[in-house]
């Protein structure tokens, strides 16, 4: 079942450089949490620490705790591979595997663990995931065609289908609509509304209206100053953030006076 996330005193470093400082945050299960803030404030970096994808960047490391339903992600016994199965991720730009068909793209994650997936099981998983990503009706007749042949918005939904096919608990989205046109964006936002029934969703977005439309809670990140680390300024229900935020900096950012 979908899980909640507790972050306490999280510091993120690139080598010796402290990129994000002292984040404390609780993310509710089965809801959408938006991370907003100016470029370079560390929100994407923070997002990546929730499934240990920051480890892909040489020299990146964290201090502090991230608990998913009480399990710490950074215990020595924890396998990052398992973390990423539990916490799925959708990226800024659609990234289907170029050499694979739509069908194989959806199954890519599942095939890693289930070498002998039966044809009927595989068909069922593909249909379920594509339906879950609101893509089934558009692609059901061309499942064997390359995933790269789809439009940008369809590719992004294919990536979401690929992510939910492994049945994660949590879905991280790193500006999933920034490379898409308004119609595709709206399709993805509708999808996010449906997905939160099943998944805990954390979404990074530069688009304030999007944060207001899709999320229950919003966290505002900002830089403490030029060359200083990013930090979490305020986290509150989205309604509150966009009407009466606690912090002046938040209001300044949202009303466009800054950033």
């Amino acid at each position: 079942m979908a899980k909640s996330i507790d972050v306490s005193d999280l510091n993120i470093y690139y080598g010796d450089f402290l990129a994000v400082e002292g984040v404390n945050m609780t993310i509710t299960a089965r809801s959408v949490t938006a991370l907003i803030g100016p470029s370079g404030c560390g929100k994407s970096t923070f997002l990546r620490t929730l499934n240990r994808m920051h480890e892909v960047i040489p020299g990146a490391r964290v201090e502090g705790k991230v608990l998913v339903d009480g399990q710490s992600l950074y215990d020595s016994a924890v396998d990052p591979v398992e973390v990423r199965r539990m916490v799925g991720m959708v990226f800024q730009r659609p990234n289907p595997f170029p050499t694979m068909s739509i069908y194989e793209n959806v199954l890519a994650g599942l095939r890693l663990n289930n070498k002998k997936l039966s044809k009927s099981d595989a068909d069922a998983v593909v249909e379920k995931a594509l339906r879950g990503a609101n893509l089934w009706n558009e692609v059901k007749d061309r499942l064997t065609k390359p995933g790269m042949g789809l439009s940008g918005g369809q590719q992004q939904r294919l990536c979401i289908a690929r992510a939910i096919a492994v049945e994660p608990q949590i879905l991280l989205m790193d500006e999933p609509c920034s490379a898409l046109d308004p119609i595709s964006t709206s399709a993805i936002e509708d999808l996010i509304h449906e997905l939160k029934e099943q998944y805990t969703i954390v979404i990074v977005t530069h688009n304030m209206q999007q944060a207001a439309r899709v999320s229950e809670d919003t966290a505002f990140f900002n830089l403490a100053g030029a060359g200083k680390p990013g930090r979490l300024v305020e986290m509150n229900p989205t309604k509150k953030i966009f009407s009466v935020p606690d912090e002046e900096a938040t209001e300044a950012y949202i009303s466009g006076r800054f950033g």
């Binding site: 215990d75 016994a77 099981d121 069922a124 998983v125 049945e167 099943q198």
Partner: peptide, 21 residues
């Protein structure tokens, strides 16, 4: 969504802890 074929893996049963070297 549960009316479709059973998923090959049980969803809640997975642990992120694996014995590691």
């Amino acid at each position: 969504m549960t009316d479709l074929a059973p998923a090959p893996t049980e969803r809640a049963a997975r642990s992120i802890k694996n014995p590691r070297l």
